[in-house]
Write a protein that binds this DNA or RNA. Structure first.
Lengths: 154, 154
DNA sequence: CGCTTGCTTGGAGTGCACTCCAAGGTTCTA
DNA sequence: TAGAACCTTGGAGTGCACTCCAAGCAAGCG
C-alpha cells in the first residue's frame, strides 16, 4: 500500500472525527459568511489568513466570490487547534507551505509537529505549576475568609 | 487566630517554597539588574510594570534608584505564573489594586483567583484536545514515512 | 426593477505587551 | 579621580494578530 492510495497531494490528510453542520462532500461550497458561522473566525480574519498564505487557494464562484470546501474547513480546524497552542502564525504558514509543496515534505512536517507536541506538553506542565500556586493561594484566602467570618461572629 | 497574625496589610501572602539565589530578609535590596537576572524580565518591563500599577511602590536608594525586596520578587513570581495562564495584564493590575486596598478585598481576590483557576483548567483541557490531534497527525506521518521508505527499498 | 444584504479589494487602524531611545545622573573598580 | 558600567525619565517605536474602512460589485426577494 502506497501513500498515494490514502492521500492526495494537496491535502494534509487524516482529518479525524467528522465535523457537525457540514454539507456532504460534493455539495460543499460554503460562502465566507457560512464559514464564519462554522468556525467562529471573522470574515476579515479568513481573508487575512488567505493573504498571508495560511490557506490553500480557495475556490471562487463565477463572479469571484469565495467558496470554501469541507477540506478547507478541516484545515481551519487544524489551524484553530494550532492557534490554541500559542504557535505563531508564521510557523503555521510554514506548515501550510510544506503541505503545498507536496509529499516530499512529510519528514519536515513530522518534525514540526513533534516539536509542537513537545511545546504543548511543556505548556501543560507550566499550567499545572501555575495551578498549584493558585490552589495554594485560593485555600489561603478561603481560610482567611473563614477567620474573618468567625471574628465578626464573636 | 486572626488573619492579622499571619499576614501584613501590604502583602499578598502565602509565598510558597523559598526561591533560590536570594539574600536573607533584612539584606534584601536588589538593583534592577539583579532583578533582571533573577526573573528573566527586562529592566524595561520591570519599569513598565511599575508605571501601569502592576507593582507595589518600590523602595528607592537615597539617589532615587530602585531597590527591590524579597517581597517584590515573590510578587514578580506570582505575576510570572499568572502571565503563563494568559491572564491579561489589565486583570493582574486589578488584582494588584485589590492587594493595595487591604484585607477587606480578600473576598474579591478569592473570586478572581477561582475564576483564573477555572480558566487554567479549561486551557489545559483545550491543550489536551490539541495534543490528541497532534498525536493523530504525528502517527499518520510516521506511517507515511515508513510507507515511503519501504517504497524506495523495493 | 429596486432594495437589502452580502462579498470584493488594498490599505490603514487597533490593542496588547512590551521594547527602545536620548540625555543625563550614579556607582563601582583601578 | 578617571572611566566603565549602570541607573533614571517620558515618550516614541515595534511586532503580532487581527480589525476595520471605503467604494463598488453580486445575490436573492417582492
Amino acid at each position: 500500500m502506497t501513500v498515494m492510495e490514502t492521500t492526495g497531494t494537496r491535502t494534509d490528510t487524516c482529518a479525524g472525527p467528522p465535523q457537525q453542520n457540514r454539507r456532504p462532500d460534493g455539495e460543499d461550497r460554503y460562502t465566507i459568511s457560512e464559514v464564519v458561522a462554522l468556525t467562529g473566525l471573522t470574515a476579515h480574519t479568513l481573508r487575512w489568513y488567505e493573504r498571508i498564505g495560511l490557506m490553500p487557494h480557495i475556490d471562487r464562484s463565477h463572479t469571484g466570490q469565495r467558496r470554501y470546501t469541507n477540506r478547507d474547513l478541516d484545515w481551519l480546524d487544524l489551524v484553530g487547534k494550532l492557534r490554541l497552542t500559542g504557535m505563531p502564525v508564521a510557523d503555521m504558514v510554514r506548515y501550510a507551505e510544506l503541505v503545498r509543496e507536496g509529499d516530499h515534505t512529510y519528514g519536515e512536517r513530522f518534525e514540526l509537529l513533534k516539536t509542537t507536541r513537545e511545546d504543548v506538553l511543556a505548556r501543560i506542565d507550566e499550567l499545572r505549576g501555575t495551578l498549584a500556586v493558585l490552589d495554594r493561594k485560593i485555600s489561603f484566602y478561603a481560610d482567611a475568609g473563614r477567620a474573618l467570618a468567625s471574628e465578626r461572629s464573636r
